[in-house]
Write a protein that binds this DNA or RNA. Structure first.
Lengths: 349, 349
DNA sequence: CACATGCTGTGTAACGATACACAAGATAGG
DNA sequence: CCTATCTTGTGTATCGTTACACAGCATGTG
């Protein structure tokens, strides 16, 4: 931290001396103002202001009280990627809302993908954790469990000791894939990454079980369900994998696979973000939607609505709020997480 | 926080007893593993695992060491609004990146707009603050200053004791307004809120000094500079104020002011977000850009590029990183913050 | 062989606050 | 007027860790 030219931080004892009261009186002045007479309170406040006392030391307080007033959020492997994912951001807004209404700070644990991440989790000064979607093999999960603090996982993976908040991705994927791929000749899924390696590429007949991100896996399974239910063979469906949930990246990947004779004529994308990137590439290639190319998204963002994109609407913000409430031990809305198929002009029906 | 059925958290002393070593040895095992022989280290680790010891108590550690390992971020008045602002998010990504690379947690202080916000700042267990743009009269600023921790303000306002990181908004606004409003007959500025009241509305000849958000104020001044330099009178320029930086809100406001005979024929928007909302409304109203309506944005987002929007490009992410580095006392890149006018098809030249 | 040096392990004294129990004076009720 | 109760202020012990100083032993050096 920056150089500290300022004199050392005053302590409660010094304020007490200056105000000619006991330390406890100062403590009460901050923690339970009603416990102190108005006159004394004013004297203490004045002394504190005079000395530049910034209030009780948070570390000392948390040591003594046994709680920190912070909720921890663990965001996948690399902190920064998560901030660039609009879905993660919406989710965070929900978590933040609950935190704010409880006066809790929201601490984002600095995950980098290095082995030291487990230490970072252990060192986090928080009273509980919300874990944003990560892969089955991510070691931070057990680090979270090891703290024995209350914690909730969003999206996945399942963990023996931790409750999970997630939509039925497989069922939703089944529904939207039925719209997206119906009657397609060259069907494709535009997918989230399969695992923490986040390799970009196009696969034929990819076994969903290869994906260690639960969300990716379940959506692939749902797509397979729908395709096979329509009489197709899974290996006919190509799976284009984006390393991140970013329109820009989808656009550049799509620009490549839209060229050539085997360009898809129907794509189920795992997010609106990816779908919109694809649509930009399609527009540039002179392809009409849904004429030449049927597209579906996922999430139900404003941008999807503006683009007339058929999508699976879900409320990530509400899900974030729900996770936070669960961690706080509140009675959150119960029941499964809602989703809804929204039909628009990017599909034929 | 949730009920805590688990047995109380073990302490270092208990681990020490179980491993038959002194407490200090346990402490060193966590804080300076090299200080301990490999054999002893293994014994301690084993004992800790057996007892379910999650590592040193963060509160105690921070009390003793005098630092918390967390960087605080104060995000305007209401935590949630800030998370919904894409600019704020980009900025946060930059802060987060620096935090992650230093192994620091990023704590978002729960601001709600209530008077208790000052307490929240004082109670935050952090080693320094980054303050995201707020209004001149926001009391959290003095709360931040009162902690005497290192702190940096982004965007504004200026504060006697705190360094500020901001672009020369006035100069940039001058440049982009010259493009946007050149030759306009019914010029308009689509503006950020003026103050924390965040009132939506359309004004004629608004005095820039009325805005208590520095960014808003300076950009209005720049627009006035440009308009007057072109021989115009400031009161001729209407100022449409959005309560938030949201495309959706801009769209609904624009839908209203684009009707009628006094609809603007040139608009300088204070963000790409607002500009894109306006363009959606314009498209729906059957107006051609730039034929019927010249539009400029601000920020240089991907979406602006995709939409062919003339804009002031700036790197908010880099600015976030810079703020964090300054708080950490690092030698950050010096010099003024860069911005660049990017001309595209939404303007005539 | 005497002595300097490095490696490991150990006690003790804080770090700054709050829970708790208690005391003195004020107020109220019968 | 005396006891019951409320209000307000006060010590003391303790939360769990780490800085510091020191001790014992092994190794290296002249």
């Amino acid at each position: 931290m920056a150089k500290d030219p300022s004199q050392p931080r005053p302590t409660m004892a010094e304020v007490a001396r200056a105000a000619k009261v006991s330390v406890m009186t100062v403590s009460y002045t901050y923690a339970q103002p009603d416990r102190v007479s108005e006159r004394t309170r004013a004297r203490v406040r004045e002394a504190a202001a005079r000395l530049g006392y910034p209030g009780p030391h948070p570390g000392a307080r948390s040591l003594r009280r046994g709680r920190t007033g912070n909720l921890g959020v663990v965001l996948g492997e690399h902190l920064t990627y998560a901030f660039e994912d609009p879905q993660a951001t919406r989710f965070l807004a929900g978590v933040a809302e609950v935190c704010a209404s409880h006066g809790l700070g929201l601490t984002i644990v600095p995950i980098t993908g290095a082995p030291s991440d487990a230490d970072r989790v252990a060192e986090a000064a928080v009273d509980g954790f919300v874990v944003w979607t990560t892969s089955d093999d991510d070691p931070v999960l057990s680090a979270v469990a090891a703290t024995a603090l209350p914690a909730v996982v969003h999206g996945g993976p399942h963990h023996r000791k931790l409750p999970i908040v997630a939509v039925d991705d497989r069922a939703a994927a089944r529904a939207v894939a039925a719209e997206a791929l119906a009657g397609a000749r060259r069907p494709m899924v535009l997918s989230f990454p399969l695992d923490r390696a986040r390799t970009t590429g196009v696969h034929n007949g990819l076994d969903p079980a290869e994906a260690t991100f639960r969300v990716t896996r379940e959506r692939l399974r749902g797509a397979r369900d729908a395709w096979e239910a329509a009489g197709g063979q899974w290996p006919q469906v190509r799976v284009a994998v984006c390393a991140r949930n970013s329109a820009r990246e989808a656009e550049s990947l799509a620009t490549a696979f839209l060229k050539g004779s085997d360009a898809p004529d129907a794509v189920m994308a795992m997010s609106d973000e990816l779908a919109l990137g694809l649509m930009r590439a399609a527009a540039r290639a002179g392809l009409a939607v849904p004429g030449d190319l049927v597209v579906t998204g996922w999430d139900g963002t404003d941008a999807a609505a503006a683009a007339g994109l058929t999508t699976v609407a879900q409320d990530l913000r509400a899900q974030g709020a729900r996770c936070a409430q669960l961690v706080l031990g509140e009675e959150a809305a119960t029941g499964p997480i809602e989703w809804r198929l929204v039909l628009r002009d990017s599909t034929r029906r």
